[in-house]
Design a protein around this nucleic acid. Sequence first.
DNA 1: ATGTCATCGTAACGATGA
Length: 258
Amino acid sequence: MRIATWNVNSMKARLQTVLQVLTDINADVVCLQELKCETDAFPYLEIEELGWNCAVHGQKSYNGVALLSKFPLQDVTREMSTLKDDQARYIEATVLTDKPVRVGGLYLPNGNPAPGPKYDYKLEWVAALEDHARSLLKAEEPFVLCGDYNAIPAPEDCWDDTVWNTDALGLPETRAAWRQLKHLGLTDAFEVCDGRAHQYTFWDYQGGAFQKDHGIRIDHILACPRMTDRLTAIEIYRKARAMDKPSDHVPMIAIFED
DNA sequence: ATGTCATCGTAACGATGA
């Protein structure tokens, strides 16, 4: 079972790229972020034609998340139990295989400029995610939480920490919140399956960042203990960043034993 | 001297978010 996460930075502007990448990565489940379209404007027909079931939580202009699955999706929820949010940043559903798994797709707030109200919202959001993860653990159904966390876990997860450790994505308080989430008993799939320094999932459009490999690792897959037992490998599909009309993020794929 | 992109409101860009 291959579970992927990818911030597409607009479904409308990126549709052809998205269709190509979906074929390339051969995942069973894909969490998408930054759709930048309303739920009804999602290109259901084109995606379904490739064999996906879709669950979408969109909004106008900003944010927006979706779950794509080759298997049926059941019990879709579009908010965390712990946060009343007017921004479309969360979606969760059960993927019905012979070993059902609850998949949460999330788009954590960017939080810049920090400090300020946007950073406060980010911290509030990650605290709500922690509470929600706690309730998922209590429910004892296997789950993964995938998405754009807008968090650089450690200095070696960016190209130059002196640039990022004062940014909302790399501030000590952001990293502490990330660790606190993990310490509930969740596993960063990249950390245990690869763990190398300077492996990135995002490169800014500006200043030739990709060519210089000036990236950051901010897209993550967190697994509960039972899913961690099945975890075998992690992949970062870097090629997506070199395509025509690329997103600034690339897909990350976690592979679980069937 | 040296590569940003997408969206919206409004009518060819400026403002905004990332």
